[in-house]
Computed example of a mutant assay.
Amino acid sequence: MPAIVDPHIGFVSFQEALRAGTIRPAPCASHPDLYVLHDTPEPGTQRLTYAFVTGSLAKAYAVYVLAEPLNGRPCFGVGYATDVEYRGQGLATELVKASMVELEKGLAPKLSTPGFYVEAIVGVDNVASKKVATRTLSDTPKSTKDKVSGHPALQYVKLLGC
Results as ranks from 00 to 15, higher is better:
residue 97 K to S: 13
residue 113 T to S: 13
residue 68 E to P: 02
residue 144 T to H: 02
residue 80 Y to H: 01
residue 67 A to S: 14
residue 158 K to I: 08
residue 88 G to V: 07
residue 119 E to Y: 03
residue 60 A to R: 01
residue 152 P to E: 08
residue 147 K to A: 15
residue 85 E to L: 03
residue 86 Y to C: 10
residue 60 A to D: 02
residue 91 L to G: 06
residue 124 V to Y: 00
residue 142 K to W: 04
residue 75 C to L: 09
residue 145 K to C: 11
residue 113 T to Y: 12
residue 117 Y to N: 09
residue 112 S to I: 06
residue 103 L to Q: 10
residue 127 V to N: 01
residue 132 V to F: 00
residue 122 V to H: 01
residue 135 R to M: 12
residue 139 D to V: 12
residue 123 G to P: 03
residue 150 G to F: 09
residue 117 Y to W: 15
residue 140 T to K: 15
residue 158 K to D: 00
residue 94 E to D: 15
residue 117 Y to M: 05
residue 87 R to Y: 07
residue 91 L to E: 04
residue 148 V to W: 13
residue 147 K to Y: 14
residue 77 G to C: 08
residue 101 V to P: 05
residue 121 I to R: 00
residue 144 T to F: 02
residue 96 V to H: 06
residue 89 Q to S: 09
residue 134 T to F: 09
residue 100 M to L: 14
residue 97 K to R: 15
residue 87 R to L: 02
residue 142 K to N: 08
residue 85 E to P: 00
residue 86 Y to Q: 10
residue 150 G to T: 11
residue 130 K to E: 09
residue 117 Y to T: 07
residue 119 E to L: 13
residue 136 T to V: 13
residue 108 A to V: 07
residue 62 A to Q: 06
residue 74 P to S: 09
residue 156 Y to R: 03
residue 101 V to N: 09
residue 77 G to Y: 03
residue 101 V to C: 10
residue 61 Y to G: 04
residue 94 E to H: 13
residue 147 K to M: 12
residue 93 T to E: 09
residue 81 A to D: 03
residue 129 S to Y: 05
residue 90 G to S: 13
residue 154 L to T: 00
residue 137 L to V: 09
residue 85 E to G: 02
residue 78 V to Y: 04
residue 117 Y to Q: 07
residue 118 V to S: 10
residue 78 V to G: 00
residue 90 G to L: 11
residue 151 H to P: 02
residue 105 K to G: 12
residue 85 E to A: 13
residue 125 D to T: 11
residue 69 P to T: 09
residue 128 A to V: 03
residue 116 F to R: 05
residue 69 P to Y: 07
residue 155 Q to N: 13
residue 82 T to S: 06
residue 110 K to C: 07
residue 64 Y to P: 06
residue 150 G to Q: 10
residue 127 V to L: 13
residue 87 R to N: 05
residue 140 T to N: 14
residue 93 T to Q: 11
residue 66 L to W: 08
residue 153 A to P: 03
residue 98 A to Y: 06
residue 137 L to Y: 05
residue 116 F to C: 07
residue 83 D to T: 04
residue 114 P to E: 14
residue 106 G to R: 14
residue 104 E to I: 07
residue 132 V to M: 02
residue 112 S to G: 10
residue 96 V to Q: 01
residue 68 E to T: 13
residue 63 V to I: 14
residue 134 T to H: 10
residue 136 T to A: 11
residue 133 A to V: 09
residue 106 G to S: 13
residue 115 G to P: 07
residue 92 A to L: 06
residue 159 L to C: 11
residue 124 V to T: 12
residue 137 L to F: 08
residue 62 A to I: 04
residue 158 K to G: 00
residue 153 A to Y: 01
residue 117 Y to H: 15
residue 123 G to V: 00
residue 63 V to D: 08
residue 156 Y to Q: 04
residue 118 V to P: 08
residue 118 V to T: 08
residue 100 M to A: 11
residue 130 K to N: 11
residue 75 C to V: 04
residue 66 L to C: 12
residue 144 T to G: 01
residue 142 K to T: 14
residue 138 S to G: 07
residue 149 S to E: 12
residue 119 E to V: 12
